[in-house]
Amino acid sequence: MNPISNPGAFTELDRFMFESWGYLIIPNVLSEEEVSECLEASIRLHESAGTSGWAQVGKGYETEVSLERLIDHPAILPKVRALYGDRFILQSAWCTKQPAFGGMGGWHQDGSGAYDFQKLGYPIPLVQLRASFLLTDQSVPRTGNMELIPGSHRSQVRLPDSIRAARESVPIGHVICAPAGSVLLFHNAVWHRTFAHDGDYDRFTMHYIYSPPWVRCSDRFENNQEFLQRTTPTRRYLMGEFSRPDAPFGASYPTEFENE
């Protein structure tokens, strides 16, 4: 069983699957040529950063046009908009490398180290929606796949610490198998981990994380002004460069109180 969706519009079935499982798998988003361009860009990013082992590099869209195009990809953005409405930002974008013969990752939920999202309420709200573009083939297990626990974003209990510490398997773990060019779209509260990678090549995935407009960005302290000047209006908006749509504090008070 797989929660398979089609590129583009967020259908009623998409919504049901996403609410039930916490994620969608979207095949055939990128062409072979686009995958090749994005993979080459990802390799350049990591070589420039001098990374080794498991690593991630942020803000690749600032220098790599092929990665910039994915920010508002028409196969993905309608689904993000359907889940968030019209006001959301690109909170961060990370190019992740799992090295050849990489081991199993640890179980976790996405969130902030400064403030655990579970403190916000139950169920944990959608604060980070991740779109992961697979840039190397993951159509069989043990190729650096993502493993998720379906429906765990709705669980009232956390994954046992003993399971997390030992990085053990769980009976309902779902190893995502999909070819390069596919996208995995998932809720921050779904328990997940990186699966083992037996290949003799590095595995690359490009992650775009969308959030409500009040969430602090995590791949940058401020936006690159040169990037903002050359990119599109939609992408500038997604970088958080827009006027506040809500009234500033105190705007509804009578004018005689404005200076007090």
Rank of each mutant, 00 (worst) to 15 (best):
P99N: 03
F101T: 07
F101D: 06
G102D: 04
G103I: 02
M104T: 15
G106F: 08
G106Q: 13
W107E: 06
W107M: 06
W107P: 01
H108K: 13
D110E: 15
G111R: 04
A114I: 00
A114L: 11
A114Q: 10
Y115K: 02
Y115A: 08
D116C: 02
K119R: 15
K119Y: 11
L120E: 13
G121H: 09
G121W: 03
Y122K: 14
Y122D: 12
P123S: 09
P123T: 12
I124R: 11
P125L: 02
L126I: 06
L126W: 11
Q128T: 07
L129E: 03
L129R: 01
L129Q: 04
L129N: 05
L129P: 09
S132G: 10
S132I: 14
S132L: 15
S132V: 15
S132F: 11
F133S: 04
L135N: 05
T136A: 02
D137T: 01
Q138T: 10
S139H: 01
V140M: 03
R142L: 11
T143W: 03
G144M: 07
M146I: 15
M146A: 10
E147G: 09
E147I: 15
E147C: 14
L148M: 15
P150Q: 12
P150V: 14
P150S: 12
G151K: 07
S152T: 15
S152P: 14
H153F: 12
H153N: 15
S155G: 08
Q156E: 15
V157P: 00
P160A: 13
D161T: 10
I163C: 01
I163A: 00
I163K: 01
A166E: 13
E168K: 12
S169M: 12
S169G: 08
V170S: 07
V170L: 14
V170H: 02
G173C: 09
V175K: 09
C177Q: 14
A178S: 06
A178H: 02
A178N: 01
P179M: 00
P179C: 01
P179F: 00
S182P: 11
L184T: 10
L184Q: 08
L185E: 08
L185A: 06
F186C: 04
N188R: 06
N188W: 00
N188F: 02
A189G: 11
H192Q: 12
R193S: 03
T194R: 13
A196L: 05
H197R: 08
H197Y: 10
D198C: 05
G199H: 12
G199Q: 15
D200T: 12
Y201F: 13
D202T: 07
D202Y: 09
D202A: 10
F204I: 02
Y208N: 06
Y210T: 04
S211K: 07
S211C: 14
P212T: 11
P212C: 00
P212L: 08
P213F: 05
P213H: 00
W214R: 00
